[in-house]
Simulated assay, not measured.
Amino acid sequence: MTPPTGLPSGVSRTAVLIAQARQAESDRPDRLFHDPLAGPLADAAGRIPQVSEAGRRAADHFVLRTRFFDDRLLEAAQAGLRQVVLLAAGLDTRAFRLGWPAGTRLFEVDLPELVAFKEKALADLGAQPACGRTVVAADLREDWPAALREAGFDPAAPTAWLVEGVLMYLTPEDGERILDRVRELSAPGSRLAAEHVNRAYIDLPQMAPAMGRLAATRAAWLSSVEDPQEWLSPYGWRAQVTHQADLARRFGRPVPAMADPEIVGSARIWLVHAVR
């Protein structure tokens, strides 16, 4: 059922939880980032109560993940890349809150219903981006590259890609198709940042309640990856993996329970960055 705010159900609703986590982090005196739009967007979409322990653990993950990908995108910008694409952008606000160099053009790709909701909410808030920002309404399972090109994307320019929080929701075939299309659109020097999980993570007993709720809202996890470097190599990417335990130590935070090897064993949430 579509919420009365107009935000689509299913996978799109998970964007609300992520926005809520970004707001909570922004309210901390020792925050890892500042996102003044996160709370208002969550309010406009209709907040989701954090009633489960899994939900609270996920919030810790979302915070570290957000900072990790913020840093990777800004590194790409500092290296001279001026074209950025966020696939399945959700309620992402990086176009508004990061310090982009002059000349940066950022494209956000997501489902038409989510794009329509977000654009109205941002207009109501009077939000102004910190870079050139173009939204592209397209389903990643369909011909989104054509829509991206029509919106002004230049495949000859090196691009910083972000594929955050979506690949596990897609079938392996759809995920491979996305990587194929990203490869075709990526000039030498392009960079990729992405998230995925391994099968052991999906099968964790403590994740069973969350997996059940996701499936009930048409947002089941449908794919996994066992070796991110091997996974991305055939598409022309030289990848590195960062463990959340290392991120947590770097930022002086507790290791999220959902990523702590002492708790989850061999289960992994992969945070990956790669260069072409």
Results as ranks from 00 to 15, higher is better:
109 V>Y: 07
164 E>K: 03
161 W>A: 05
125 L>G: 11
97 R>H: 02
142 E>M: 06
139 D>Y: 03
80 G>F: 04
112 P>I: 02
115 V>D: 00
82 R>L: 10
166 V>F: 11
96 F>A: 09
122 L>V: 08
69 F>G: 12
65 R>S: 15
154 D>R: 14
98 L>I: 05
63 V>I: 15
141 R>W: 12
91 L>E: 07
95 A>C: 04
75 E>P: 02
165 G>D: 02
120 K>D: 01
161 W>P: 03
131 C>K: 10
167 L>E: 09
120 K>M: 00
82 R>N: 10
63 V>H: 12
104 T>Q: 09
92 D>A: 12
90 G>Y: 01
69 F>T: 14
62 F>E: 03
124 D>M: 06
70 D>K: 07
117 F>A: 09
119 E>I: 00
110 D>T: 12
135 V>H: 01
72 R>K: 15
102 A>P: 15
79 A>Q: 14
78 Q>G: 15
71 D>C: 04
147 A>W: 11
77 A>H: 11
155 P>A: 04
91 L>G: 08
132 G>D: 12
169 Y>L: 10
100 W>T: 09
160 A>I: 02
147 A>M: 09
129 P>T: 13
78 Q>V: 11
104 T>W: 07
127 A>K: 02
114 L>C: 01
129 P>V: 08
144 W>V: 14
166 V>S: 14
80 G>Y: 06
155 P>S: 06
111 L>M: 10
127 A>H: 01
97 R>M: 01
107 F>N: 13
146 A>F: 00
138 A>V: 04
105 R>V: 08
107 F>Q: 14
85 V>P: 01
84 V>P: 05
73 L>V: 10
85 V>M: 10
137 A>R: 09
162 L>N: 14
91 L>P: 08
86 L>W: 08
169 Y>W: 11
137 A>F: 00
73 L>W: 10
99 G>V: 01
108 E>G: 06
111 L>W: 05
149 R>P: 05
150 E>W: 07
142 E>C: 07
134 T>H: 06
143 D>E: 14
79 A>G: 12
124 D>L: 10
116 A>D: 00
114 L>W: 00
82 R>W: 06
76 A>R: 00
130 A>D: 01
98 L>G: 08
118 K>N: 01
102 A>G: 15
81 L>K: 11
77 A>I: 09
91 L>V: 12
77 A>P: 07
161 W>I: 04
66 T>N: 09
101 P>Q: 01
81 L>D: 08
100 W>I: 05
66 T>L: 04
156 A>K: 15
135 V>R: 10
78 Q>A: 15
112 P>E: 08
164 E>P: 10
145 P>K: 09
117 F>N: 11
119 E>D: 15
169 Y>R: 13
146 A>L: 07
99 G>M: 02
